[in-house]
Simulated assay, not measured.
Amino acid sequence: MMEYTKILAAIDLTEESTQVLDRASSLAKLYSSQLDIVHIIEPLGYAYGGDIPMDLTEVQTQLEEHAKAFLEGVGKKYSIPSENQHVVIGRPETEIHRLAEDSASDLVVVGSHGRHGIQLLLGSTANGILHGAKCDVLAVRIQ
């Protein structure tokens, strides 16, 4: 049977992330594994094709600070030390794959909204993580 020694939970900053964290935390306890959490912030320029006539540095900094504060609260609730809390700027799939490899994680836990139709065709972050991961991926169905 596979023993997970390092689990990476990828979360957004919503109430729904507790469903992902509950599952990841339970698995971490079951296997006595280290649990890391990560939130990825997409660079604001990406969302608008990079041609915005204003400096978004301050907004980006506020997003980072908000994410760090959120992870700090979650870290306290789930006993995850600050060195295991990661806020990264980039494309979610790319950065989660990179962090999972760099930290030698053997399981990535991510939320999935179980979309249908056109949303399914367009793909989701969870799907992107699943297809490029070099370790196991658990998609937690968000209720």
Rank of each mutant, 00 (worst) to 15 (best):
residue 58 E to L: 14
residue 42 E to H: 01
residue 135 C to P: 10
residue 32 S to W: 00
residue 101 E to L: 12
residue 135 C to T: 05
residue 120 L to T: 03
residue 42 E to D: 11
residue 41 I to S: 08
residue 75 G to K: 07
residue 99 L to A: 04
residue 83 E to R: 11
residue 6 K to A: 11
residue 53 P to Y: 01
residue 143 Q to F: 05
residue 108 V to G: 05
residue 58 E to I: 07
residue 71 L to T: 10
residue 79 S to C: 08
residue 119 Q to Y: 10
residue 78 Y to C: 09
residue 14 T to L: 06
residue 111 G to W: 14
residue 3 E to Y: 00
residue 28 A to W: 01
residue 13 L to H: 00
residue 67 A to V: 06
residue 82 S to N: 07
residue 10 A to D: 03
residue 80 I to M: 00
residue 119 Q to P: 00
residue 26 S to M: 10
residue 27 L to V: 04
residue 19 Q to T: 07
residue 65 E to N: 12
residue 50 G to H: 02
residue 50 G to M: 05
residue 65 E to D: 11
residue 101 E to S: 15
residue 133 A to W: 05
residue 62 Q to E: 15
residue 24 A to S: 08
residue 109 V to T: 12
residue 27 L to M: 14
residue 99 L to Y: 06
residue 114 G to M: 09
residue 77 K to D: 13
residue 62 Q to C: 03
residue 89 I to H: 09
residue 7 I to Y: 02
residue 111 G to K: 05
residue 70 F to Y: 14
residue 14 T to E: 14
residue 24 A to T: 08
residue 85 Q to Y: 01
residue 9 A to I: 02
residue 63 L to C: 03
residue 26 S to E: 15
residue 104 A to C: 03
residue 139 A to R: 13
residue 23 R to V: 13
residue 78 Y to T: 06
residue 100 A to N: 03
residue 23 R to T: 15
residue 74 V to I: 15
residue 7 I to M: 01
residue 49 G to V: 01
residue 105 S to C: 15
residue 113 H to A: 14
residue 78 Y to L: 10
residue 11 I to T: 09
residue 43 P to R: 03
residue 99 L to F: 04
residue 116 H to D: 13
residue 30 L to Y: 10
residue 21 L to S: 11
residue 31 Y to I: 08
residue 118 I to S: 03
residue 5 T to Q: 12
residue 62 Q to Y: 08
residue 125 T to W: 05
residue 77 K to I: 02
residue 28 A to V: 08
residue 118 I to F: 15
residue 37 I to T: 08
residue 57 T to Q: 13
residue 82 S to Y: 01
residue 83 E to P: 02
residue 19 Q to N: 01
residue 69 A to Y: 06
residue 138 L to W: 02
residue 124 S to C: 09
residue 78 Y to G: 03
residue 57 T to V: 04
residue 120 L to R: 13
residue 87 V to I: 04
residue 40 I to F: 06
residue 58 E to Y: 12
residue 44 L to I: 15
residue 82 S to V: 11
residue 54 M to H: 07
residue 53 P to Q: 09
residue 117 G to F: 09
residue 69 A to R: 12
residue 82 S to C: 01
residue 90 G to E: 15
residue 41 I to F: 00
residue 33 S to N: 06
residue 59 V to D: 10
residue 31 Y to D: 05
residue 68 K to V: 11
residue 36 D to T: 04
residue 138 L to S: 04
residue 33 S to I: 02
residue 6 K to H: 11
residue 20 V to K: 09
residue 123 G to N: 03
residue 121 L to C: 07
residue 102 D to W: 00
residue 104 A to D: 13
residue 71 L to H: 06
residue 23 R to E: 15
residue 127 N to D: 15
residue 29 K to R: 12
residue 112 S to Y: 09
residue 27 L to F: 06
residue 27 L to I: 03
residue 32 S to N: 13
residue 110 V to H: 09
residue 139 A to V: 14
residue 28 A to S: 14
residue 5 T to I: 01
residue 10 A to I: 06
residue 51 D to M: 05
residue 102 D to E: 15
residue 61 T to F: 01
residue 117 G to P: 09
residue 19 Q to L: 10
residue 109 V to P: 12
residue 94 T to L: 04
residue 111 G to Y: 13
residue 79 S to V: 05
residue 57 T to A: 11
residue 104 A to Q: 14
residue 85 Q to M: 11
residue 4 Y to K: 09
residue 141 R to E: 05
residue 86 H to N: 14
residue 118 I to E: 06
residue 139 A to Y: 04
residue 107 L to A: 04
residue 48 Y to K: 01
